[in-house]
Amino acid sequence: MRVLVGVKRVIDYAVKVRVKADKTGVVKDNVKHSMNPFDEIALEEAVRLKEKKIAKEVVAVSCGPTASQETLRTALAMGADKAIHVEVDAATAEKMEPIHVAKILAKLIEKEKFDLVILGKQAIDDDANQTGQMLAGFLDWPQAMFASKIEPDGSTHLKVTREIDGGLDTIKVKLPAVISADLRLNEPRYATLPNIMKAKKKPLEKKTPADFGVEIKPQTETVEVSDPPVRQAGIMVDDVQSLVSKLREKGAIP
């Protein structure tokens, strides 16, 4: 089984994101970037499938600017066998939407045979949560979104557990299929020194959207990006007595 994993370079989850003064987007220059955490989980799952001999090869793909290659090297250091970089310039990257990525991946999958695609459930920068679903649609493959557990079910199917409101939903999908990874699927490994060294030598293929006949024409327009409303400061009370009277004053208790 060949597994394709999509990995996106995003602003690191620990960075405090700042909105640009003109509100057209967020500040990205000189800001730490890393692999989208949900994609790390997707990749880890693929590598585990390989370690269990269920998968034969794991290929990581990233659509984005030149710097996305760093993310692909990380993917290789975490155990992917090869990488494909679909490069766009920085300006195009800003305009790229999930539908473009889904179209590129669909074409890539048509060209090179894959049996399974695992993606993160969403990217933490745009929170779009669309790529996996659209990709499954384009390919007409079954989809299992927000997976928290993946198990083989014979050689033709996978059993996928999904966390849903108040419980678990277990579904069976026939391969080939598209799966998206949720937070609790696994805990990704850290790349170790020997694996980082080896990753520098693993094959990284460069492509462009044009190679897949995809044109990056945006369907939406960003009107404004703004900071979340600032929470109003609280007040300090001296003792329980004054707390109770304050609450009563505000009508919170009778």
Partner: peptide
């Protein structure tokens, strides 16, 4: 350099002897 060594979790640039292939 094995799992027991601090450098196991290091990145190559933290290693004064560059790309220590001989350490594995």
């Amino acid at each position: 350099i094995t799992e027991q060594c601090p450098l196991w979790m290091a990145t190559p640039d933290q290693c004064p002897l560059p790309d220590p292939y001989w350490a594995f």
